[in-house]
Structures are given as structure tokens and as C-alpha cells.
Write a protein that binds this DNA or RNA. Structure first.
Lengths: 229, 229
DNA sequence: CCAAAAGTGTTTCACGTACACCCATGC
DNA sequence: GCATGGGTGTACGTGAAACACTTTTGG
């Protein structure tokens, strides 16, 4: 089966930069490619868009197929279309970034990925194609976006402590924050619902658990509220 | 001549949302389509990307071909890829937004445009395809971006008065600003070079002319400065 | 001389920032 | 009992916001 057009067309792909957070680092989900070009090289999960498939859907599908990750926060990042970014053919790729809670997802490599694994953004292997450039832009976007939209929560479990939340911002923004000022500010926004529970299994005083109150956030936005770290 | 591929491929286009500013309104540059679909309908300038052409280059080329507008500030906005956004065929379009000084550009409709004209964003005709959606997103992006990047200047002549600059922000952000506070803040940033000249031909006291000091802005950024309105 | 916009300072208030100690828990 | 992080309040300074009058120019 083949398809013929009057003018040549680029191939059309998606790539996903999936961020996760552990106790130490900001991490990104990579796959080891099973095919040429760059077979054996680490790369962003992604692949070609089907002809009857919206781009966002393609990003979610490829992510699920190659890594097992599903139902996550996903937004378009940028479209990369340098003529020579793929050695085989002209390939235009719409890059997405996703935020997930690391522990929620069992990784299942499949499709044309040999394996899928988390890498610290500070210790990355060599990446295929222009994926390093895509990743850099995604990290930059993430830094910009967490400061004025409450999406950092996507990286945490549904119930989390203020310590975890502060650690999240410190990791992404790459600077220390003052504990008292952070708590004052974030609690003052009325976006966190205190659950009346505490964490357990820690070798120190257990911290209170909170969750992001999306309903109240939406109401506040309607009244003109702007989240800002 | 024709081109054959193993899998079907979307057609691949660009569209440009070109903003300009006059004494009254924020305006956008539209073309009247000469061909089906939507012949006779107003639309964003744009067209198909050549196979050996970077996407940005395609946006600039189409803009020049269809409207005569060249050498402008142009950035990628978003990629639109709904399956049914074009009735003929699957077409993915990378949208760009551009900022120009209205008076610098003589409009020359050509290529597949019958005419090109400026429309106030508050009084728009019906637009082809999903161009209204693209335009809305562009306007939203513009509002977001002028507040923390000094790109508003792209909409003004090289020499401008503080009045014009304030009017620009009031128009884009759609709210009144306090004259004294605005002047204090913008002059305090040391981004404007006073030219020692005044405007002429006005029926009131002539205002001083300034220009944006890009060199100094770049230096300040290197020292950690962040523009913020 | 009238209309129209240019240009200019001060006060007030909110918010960001800096900073240190006691408390609860697990081991 | 000790190590580890949890949790809390205040003082200071900067910057945003509110606000009105005089000056200049063209017609």
C-alpha cells in the first residue's frame, strides 16, 4: 500500500519530554531505540502521527505504547522542523512536555523501544536527533511555567507535604527557598486542602498532608486570581 | 510529478498572525482568499511548507508573498492539527505571530491572495478554517508575553514617545495605566535612550522621542535583569 | 486664550525577604 | 537522648498604587 501526492510532504511526528521528580532530582523519561537511525541510543519517546489522529492523541498514544505512561498532564511545547534534523527524511516533530508522579507509573518498554528509564536531567546520556535541544527547551519552559501556573502538583502524589512541594520548586527553579516564606505564601493562596492526616514511616516528626484544591483554584481564577510562586 | 510514501502524510502549512497598532486599535493583517476552499473569505496569511525549507522560513516567505510584509519580529505560536480543520485534506499548520509597525509596510497582495488589509481585532470578519481560534490564541499569547519581554517596541516606529508606548500597553492589556507610574517604571529600567528630539506636527506640546536601547537591554539581561511591565 | 497632551513627586500600603527557635517522632 | 525535619512570627525595606497641577504648543 502506498500514498501519492502532487507535492512532497514531510513525515510528521511527535516527541514527549516526560518529567518526574524523586527525592533527589528532576528526572526525564527516555527510551532506548531499537531501530535505526540511532539504534541503541537513548531518545525521547515519540513516533509518527497517524493520518486520522489529532496531534495530542498521537503524543499520548506513543507515550503509552513506548513506555506504559498514561493519563498525564501533557501540553504542546514547540514544533521542530529543521530540514536536516532526521538523517533519513524530512521529519517535522511536534514536541510535548508531560508531568507525572514517578511512582504512579510502572514503566513498560514496548513498540520500538528496547527499554524505558528515568534519567536525572543533570546526568543525561547522549540523545538521538535534536532531542537534547528539545529537552533543554522543555526544561526552560517548565521553569517558566511552574511560577505562574499551579501545575507542579502534577509531579507529586495526590497527597503531599509542604516539604515535598517546596522541594519541587527548589529543584525545578534550581534555588533555595525560605521555608517560612514559602509556607506563608502557598497557604495564603487557599489552594491547598489540609487533609487532617500525616505522613508515616519517616524517621522524624510526621508532616501534615495536603492536596491541591482544583475546584477552589478554578473559582479563584474566575474572580481574577493569578497563581504566582 | 508526484511523490509516493508508504504511509499517508498530512499536508504541512504555516499561518501568520501579524499584529500592528494604530492610534486607536490593535490590528491584524488578513488576506482575502482567492481559491477554494473559503474563496472570498478572509484568512490569516500562510501556506504550505516546502520540503527543503525550515518552518520559520516558510512563515516568512508566505508572509512576504501574500502581503509584502518582510523583516519582522516573528515567533512560533502553536501547532494546530485537528483532523478536520481543513475540509480538503488533513493539514497540520504551525501558527506564528508577528509584530510590525503598521506604517513601515506597504501591503501588496499577491500569490493566492486577492487583497491584504488590516482589521481591528475588535471588528473581525468571519475567518476561514480555524483561523479565528488561532487568532484568539495569538492575542492571548501577546498579552502574556509583552508583560515580561520588551517586544512591544516592535509595534512602534523606531523613535516613539512615552505616550505611544503607554498607549500600546493599554491597548494590548486592555486596561488603563497610570501615566506617572508608567513613566517612572519604564524610565527606571534604563532601556530607553532619550534622543533629544521631539515629535512634530501635533496640536499640543511636543513630546520627547525615545528609542529602545537593545544593546543595554542585553547587557542588563546578562546581569540578571528581568523586564516586567 | 483655549484645547490638548507633556511632564513631574509624594504618600501610603502591601508584599517580599531575612531570620532562629522549640516541637514531635523514630531509632 | 539524639538526630531529623516540622512548624511558627516579626521586623524591615522595596516597590506598586493612588493621586493633581503646571507647562508647552498649535490653532
Amino acid at each position: 500500500m502506498s500514498y501519492t501526492y502532487q507535492y512532497p510532504r514531510p513525515a510528521f511526528a511527535v516527541d514527549c519530554v516526560v518529567f518526574g521528580l524523586d527525592e533527589e532530582h528532576l528526572k526525564v523519561l527516555l527510551i532506548e531505540r531499537d531501530r535505526e537511525p540511532f539504534a541503541g541510543c537513548w531518545a525521547l519517546p515519540g513516533g509518527f502521527v497517524e493520518i486520522d489522529e489529532a496531534i495530542d492523541d498521537a503524543a499520548r498514544r506513543e507515550l503509552a505504547e513506548e513506555t506504559g505512561v498514561e493519563n498525564v498532564f501533557l501540553e504542546q511545547l514547540y514544533t521542530f522542523g529543521a530540514v536536516d534534523r532526521d538523517p533519513r527524511d524530512r521529519v517535522v516533530s511536534v514536541a510535548y512536555y508531560a508531568l507525572v508522579n514517578l511512582l504512579d507509573h510502572q514503566l513498560h518498554a514496548a513498540s520500538d523501544a528496547r527499554q524505558a528509564a528515568w534519567f536525572s536531567v543533570k546526568r543525561l546520556p547522549r540523545l538521538a536527533f535534536d532531542h537534547r535541544e528539545i529537552l533543554n527547551l522543555a526544561q526552560q519552559r517548565l521553569r517558566g511555567v511552574v511560577r505562574y501556573r499551579p501545575i507542579g502538583f502534577e509531579l507529586l502524589p495526590r497527597k503531599f507535604t509542604l516539604r515535598q512541594l517546596q522541594h519541587l520548586y527548589e529543584t525545578i527553579l534550581d534555588r533555595k527557598l525560605d521555608k517560612r516564606n514559602f509556607r506563608k505564601k502557598i497557604l495564603g493562596m487557599q489552594l491547598l486542602e489540609e487533609l487532617g492526616e500525616c505522613e508515616s514511616g519517616v524517621a522524624h516528626r510526621a508532616a501534615r498532608l495536603y492536596r491541591f484544591d482544583r475546584r477552589n483554584y478554578n473559582q479563584l481564577v474566575n474572580k481574577g486570581f493569578n497563581f504566582e510562586l
